[in-house]
């Protein structure tokens, strides 16, 4: 039993749990910083699945899955950096950094056109 629970088997389960936990945070929290953190935690869950798969069995770890994870981490930090910049931009415009649920103010009648 313990033999079958090598890290390569155990960690993907943890990755699945992290993904779901992040999703829960993304659904439930409204503040953008927390939502961005939630997306990052989901991403870490995916990376854990990849790295767990890479470490399965007795063979040396799979460098392809590890390289994909490295790429994924850099893509994630890029997306996060932009999301944070957008959050600050939104806060400058509205005074808060929260996305409230429900339809936005798209039905507002008049709006000066784009610059």
């Amino acid at each position: 039993m313990i033999e079958s629970l090598d890290p390569g088997t155990l960690y993907p389960f943890g990755g699945a749990a992290l993904f779901a936990l992040g999703l829960h945070g993304l659904i439930r929290r409204r503040h953008l910083i927390l939502r961005i953190l939630a997306v990052n935690i989901m991403g870490s869950g995916v990376f854990m699945v990849f790295l767990g798969i890479a470490a399965r069995g007795d063979a040396p770890p799979d460098p392809v899955a590890q390289a994909l994870t490295l790429t994924g981490i850099v893509v994630a930090v890029s997306a996060t950096a932009f999301a944070l910049a957008l959050t600050v931009h939104l806060a400058r415009l509205t005074g808060h950094a929260v996305l409230l649920p429900g339809p936005l103010r798209t039905h507002r009648g008049n709006r000066p056109e784009d610059p």
Binding site: P7, N40, F47, A54, A55, P61, V77
Partner: peptide
């Protein structure tokens, strides 16, 4: 633990 020192390094530095 998952034998991925490169990723550990990247996670600490970048993540």
């Amino acid at each position: 633990r998952l034998e991925a020192p490169d990723i550990a390094l990247a996670e600490a530095a970048i993540g």
